[in-house]
């Protein structure tokens, strides 16, 4: 394990407390506490504009919070797969050159990462000529090159069809088996979330509810956000849900 940072020891890879983030004049997140441990799979769900991407951007250091504390393990290696990456057609870039940014790496290392992400042999293809699924896997391969302790994926299957998306999640599961890294992802695909995550965080400007998939799926906050239509596959998990959420001072739409 890498050295610990901050005052005293940090139990988690990343620990966020009392986080408030603004996007322009709009408060994207307020009072968010969050932590992820080594090897854990945590999924963030929430409607559009609920601050999911903002939370990820704070964790990777792209967004400065207005208030709150963000602590990372020292030397924590983060692999990041952005939601969408538009590469301007004027920028000539092969998959191999892209993987070699910002630092060049040996060919064998690139080939291994591509194989691990499930797209062998596309090193010399221009990025603009790849299909959506191939491109997402190249992004995954790039994140894997960092030998991440924490792999962060922001809606990684946006734009993929159902089989493509299912195959991509299987790939991520395989990656985690091989590397044992923690995974933090944003996903809209609730069936995937519910089957693959250790913990789910339901976000809507603040943490609405969190816990194991079963707990979240039966939380009234979750039902109000996502309706009960998506719960068909989750009926098995339903259980009594009797704790309160008095700390949430908001009203849910719907």
């Amino acid at each position: 394990m890498p050295l610990l940072s901050g005052n005293g020891s940090l139990k988690y890879l990343v620990e966020v407390s009392g986080l408030t983030v603004k996007a322009g004049n709009h408060t994207a997140l307020s009072g968010v506490d969050f932590a992820i441990s080594a090897g854990e799979i945590v999924t963030i769900i929430g409607p559009n504009g609920s601050g999911k991407t903002s939370l990820l951007r704070v964790i990777i250091g792209a967004l400065k919070p207005v208030s709150g504390k963000v602590q990372r393990l020292e030397n924590l290696s983060i692999g990041y797969v952005p939601q969408k990456l538009h590469i301007d057609p004027t920028l000539p870039l092969t998959a191999a050159r892209f993987l070699g940014l910002p630092k060049r790496r040996p060919k064998a290392e690139l080939a291994a990462a591509l194989a691990q992400a499930g797209v062998s042999g596309i090193e010399n293809r221009p990025l603009q000529g790849l299909s959506g699924g191939q491109f997402q896997r190249v992004l995954l391969a790039r994140a894997l090159l960092e030998k991440p302790d924490l792999l962060i994926l922001d809606e990684p299957t946006t734009g993929l069809d159902q089989p493509g998306s299912a195959a991509f999640y299987q790939q991520i599961a395989a990656v985690r088996r091989d590397l044992g890294c923690a995974i933090l992802m944003v996903s809209h695909e609730l069936h995937v979330v519910m089957s693959a995550s250790d913990r789910v965080i339901c976000l809507n400007g603040h943490v609405c509810c969190h816990g194991t998939p079963e707990v979240v799926a039966s939380a009234p906050e979750y039902r109000e956000l996502f309706g009960s239509g998506t719960l068909g596959t989750l009926a098995l998990y339903r259980h009594d849900h009797d704790h309160g959420h008095d700390d949430c001072d908001h009203t849910h739409a719907g």
């Binding site: 951007r57 990777i60 250091g61 792209a62 983060i78 692999g79 990041y80 952005p82 990456l85 590469i87 920028l91 870039l93 892209f98 940014l101 910002p102 960092e146 962060i152």
Partner: peptide, 13 residues
């Protein structure tokens, strides 16, 4: 080049 490709990828790196 990284900053040109994507700001968030740059920050993460």
């Amino acid at each position: 080049l990284m900053a040109t490709l994507n700001e968030d990828l740059a920050y993460a790196g």
